[in-house]
Design a protein around this nucleic acid. Structure first.
Length: 167
DNA sequence: GCCAACGTTGGC
DNA sequence: GCCAACGTTGGC
């Protein structure tokens, strides 16, 4: 099981769009970068978890958690002449572009870029690397653990976990 | 809107 | 195979 970070422009497809989409999974179509494609095609498998990241917007950052819901298969939009993702060089016999399905798990508070940069534990995150433009990047298990346990579930000082009310 | 950084294209 | 030109990404 691996961890990932996937970027999406909220104007195009936001975490709320994913939350409202089919519960069994939504195709992550439109990736037209070979490295990102290779991650989906070769390395992503059902059950992998990902941070959903909003890019090119007022507050870029992690906004939710989702799950890979399928192995990769040919991206249908590459064959669709009316799609902005149409690729004239792709054929049914030799598809160029692939996508997985992704399904909603939960929203999180927004963890902005500045906050991510603030933590030395996350200094190695691919998405934070200077000049990075990849829309899909691997997340190391220790990075995933740090974000989910330290940033998303902070302990309030002076209160033991047991004191927190449970439903 | 600016611009740095990066990927892709295509001439040679 | 090189590399200049061009297009895109994405934070600011």
């Amino acid at each position: 099981m691996r961890y990932w970070l996937m970027k999406s422009e909220p104007d195009e497809f936001s975490i709320d769009d994913l939350r409202r989409a089919a519960p069994n999974g939504t195709p992550w179509f439109g990736v037209r970068n070979y490295q990102a494609r290779n991650f989906m095609r070769d390395d992503m498998h059902p059950g992998d978890r990902l941070f959903f990241y909003h890019s090119s917007c007022a507050e870029p950052g992690i906004v939710g958690i989702a799950e890979v819901a399928s192995d990769a298969y040919p991206d249908a939009t590459q064959f669709d002449r009316k799609s902005p993702y149409f690729d004239p060089k792709a054929t049914r016999k030799a598809p160029r572009w692939f996508n997985v399905d992704v399904k909603y798990v939960r929203k999180t508070r927004v963890i902005g870029l500045a906050e991510l940069h603030r933590h030395p534990e996350l200094a190695g995150m691919r998405v934070l690397a200077r000049g990075n433009r990849l829309s899909i990047t691997p997340v190391e298990p220790r990075e995933w653990a740090f974000i989910t346990s330290k940033l998303l579930e902070p302990r309030s000082p002076g209160r033991s976990n047991a004191a927190v009310a449970r439903p």
